[in-house]
Write a protein that binds this DNA or RNA. Structure first.
Length: 445
DNA sequence: TCTGGGGTCCTAGGACCC
DNA sequence: TCTGGGGTCCTAGGACCC
């Protein structure tokens, strides 16, 4: 095989990550927030965690996933802001649109983060670095938002380098330099290595990626199984294992759809619990119908006051997308497993094991148990969905859902966006000697 | 300090079948 | 009457990510 510039032996992947996304969007709606310590995710006394913190707030040690009350103690002067998922969705679309100008192969990994396969676009867009700079500038002018861009031969390298480029920078790891780039980093900088794995590795004396790279693959596999093997590959910058291996831009169907709710105060009130289960079942059912999915497995999640959490699942003979079936099953699971009288902190309803719709025959079966037939139910639900679209979420609630549903304050949390959560805290300015790097210094004009 | 919500993937044991 | 081996499905739990 002869190689030319059109036939590269490696891929060129961009990872584009928006800087302090939620906070930056909130600043666009309320410019008085600019430059101040801002915490997005809820009010200071609420039960919940930080979704995003401004750089000014981070200076006080505030970071995402931290309890709001802790953040309030660390930084009493911080401004606490409720999240606005619709705003983030709107800006996420704008981001997506900008990215589309640079590659047809764009994959939004979450609301504020995307991978682009830029392989072979040199002729069109010029060298990677120049292209990234243009992208960076266009992102700012089109959305008013800053981003950081990592460039590498794999998703892994692109992702790690974008984190090192933060804030508002571009970092390119040249082909062939992957191992050198990773060597001095902490093992925890590798996506997929969390607290637990980091601790396990530390106990073996492995702190940096270079220590990891010294071990042979067999050793890692023996100690950590399949994951260990993937880790060995990662230490060399390879997209080893699972999701990372997938081509950029391949849309895949969801594997599960769920909703959960943490009560403002723990409760043992059965009515309140059941109406919450109803509401969660309706939300799940609705999304199943929107996506055209039929679920065979329904799972209940139950968290007590002391944070002990159990899940209990049941698989149906025929897959469903109907509220009442989801509700009846989760209710049964609840009643069978609840330690009667024990205060409940959280309830969750999850559906999974998606299949094609139920057999047509089933729809034609006569009514059982005096219930309307399923096809009638489908019509009722479709009508309810329509009403909710038109007049808002509070218009319609079926049966139990009506009773106590809206007693609980439904506080829209930014993290309730699909695939979105707290922004990873960036250990900023820890950037190491990189083959080629550049940072916008004249930001925030 | 008291810990959200929505996901993915992996492991491991038991049931069940051949 | 002392105990196989593989495959698949189901369930529960946990690490991890944003």
């Amino acid at each position: 095989m002869n190689q030319s510039s059109d036939d590269p032996i490696h891929r060129t992947i961009f990872h584009v990550d928006m800087d302090a996304f939620f906070v930056s969007v909130e600043e666009l709606f309320d410019p008085s927030l600019v430059g101040k310590p801002v915490v997005v995710g809820g009010q200071r006394e609420e039960r919940g965690v930080v979704s995003a913190a401004s750089y000014a707030a981070r200076k006080f040690g505030v970071h995402s996933a931290m309890p709001l009350r802790t953040a309030a103690k660390l930084c009493p002067q911080a401004i606490f802001v409720d999240g606005h998922p619709e705003r983030y969705r709107e800006y996420s679309h704008k981001v997506h649109e900008v990215l589309g100008h640079f590659s047809p192969l764009v994959e939004m990994a979450s609301v504020d983060e995307a991978y682009l396969d830029m392989t072979g676009t040199e002729r069109l867009h010029g060298p990677a670095m120049r292209c990234a700079e243009r992208l960076h500038a266009e992102m700012k002018s089109s959305t008013q938002l800053n981003c950081s861009i990592g460039i590498g031969t794999s998703r892994l390298i692109a992702k790690v380098s974008s984190a090192k480029a933060k804030p508002n920078g571009v970092l390119w790891v040249l082909p062939g330099q992957e191992a050198r780039f990773l060597a001095p980093l902490n093992v925890g900088d590798i996506p997929g290595v969390g607290k637990v794995m980091e601790k396990n590795l530390a106990e073996m004396g492995i702190l940096r990626v270079r220590d990891l790279a010294k071990l042979d693959d067999g050793e890692l596999e023996r100690r950590f199984g399949k994951w260990g093997l993937a880790l060995a590959g990662k230490s060399r910058g390879e997209d080893a294992g699972g999701w990372f291996d997938a081509a950029v831009g391949e849309h895949s169907d969801p594997k599960s759809i769920s909703h959960e709710h943490t009560f403002n105060e723990d409760t043992a009130d059965r009515e309140r619990i059941e109406s919450t289960l109803m509401r969660l079942s309706e939300m799940v059912g609705r999304r199943l119908r929107e996506g055209g999915y039929f679920a065979r497995t329904i799972q209940l999640k139950l968290r007590y006051k002391d944070f002990t959490t159990i899940t209990r699942a049941h698989s149906l003979e025929q897959p469903t997308q109907m509220d009442h079936e989801i509700f009846e099953n989760s209710r049964r699971l609840f009643l069978r497993n609840w330690k009667q009288g024990a205060p409940v902190r959280l309830l969750g309803v999850q559906t999974s094991n998606f299949e094609a719709g139920p057999a047509q025959l089933d729809l034609l079966e006569p009514a059982r148990d005096g219930l309307p037939r399923n096809d009638r139910w489908q019509k009722v639900l479709a009508a309810a969905d329509h009403l909710r679209d038109k007049y808002g979420e509070s218009t319609i609630g079926l049966a139990t859902g009506m009773k106590g549903t809206f007693r609980e304050r439904t506080h829209e949390n930014p993290a309730s966006l699909p695939g979105r959560g707290p922004e990873k805290k960036s250990r900023k300015d820890e950037r190491t000697g990189s083959p080629q790097s550049h940072r916008d210094t004249e930001n925030s004009e």
